[in-house]
């Protein structure tokens, strides 16, 4: 249970970074922390006590493996996170080009 609570804590750290930080790069780091906390949570869901990694090996009868499905799904989710992070970072670099700052309070051409 305490592991799940630590995941929640990590999630809150990431969420705090997105909501409260004014620097674009720190916001992106917050987003990354959030994504990793939820990946961690999903992998933990598939764990069972004394489980071993779900790899089939020669001449071995594998019993008691952890659930392999969350691991495959989390791999997909990590790839998606990679894509989003790359895109957002390139947008942030272009924003720095145009505005000359990473401060979110100074980036305010849009309003209404």
């Amino acid at each position: 249970m305490s592991l799940y609570l630590l995941c929640l804590l990590l999630f809150c750290v990431g969420f705090y970074g997105i909501l409260r930080k004014r620097n674009l790069v720190k916001m992106i780091i917050g987003l990354g922390i959030m994504e990793y906390s939820m990946n961690l949570f999903f992998v933990l869901l598939g764990y069972r006590m004394q489980g071993r990694s779900p790899i089939e090996a020669m001449d071995q009868n594998v019993l008691n493996m952890v659930d392999p499905l969350p691991q495959a799904l989390v791999l997909t989710s990590i790839i998606i996170g990679l894509g989003v992070t790359a895109l957002v970072i390139s947008i942030a670099i272009r924003i720095y080009d145009k505005y000359g700052t990473f401060d979110i309070t100074k980036i305010n051409k849009l309003r209404g």
Partner: peptide, 19 residues
């Protein structure tokens, strides 16, 4: 793909320094 992403970020950074 990953190499192209890295390259694009590097080129972006470089053009910023020159410009």
């Amino acid at each position: 793909g990953l190499f192209a992403i890295f390259l694009a970020l590097v080129i972006l950074e470089k053009s910023k320094k020159e410009g």
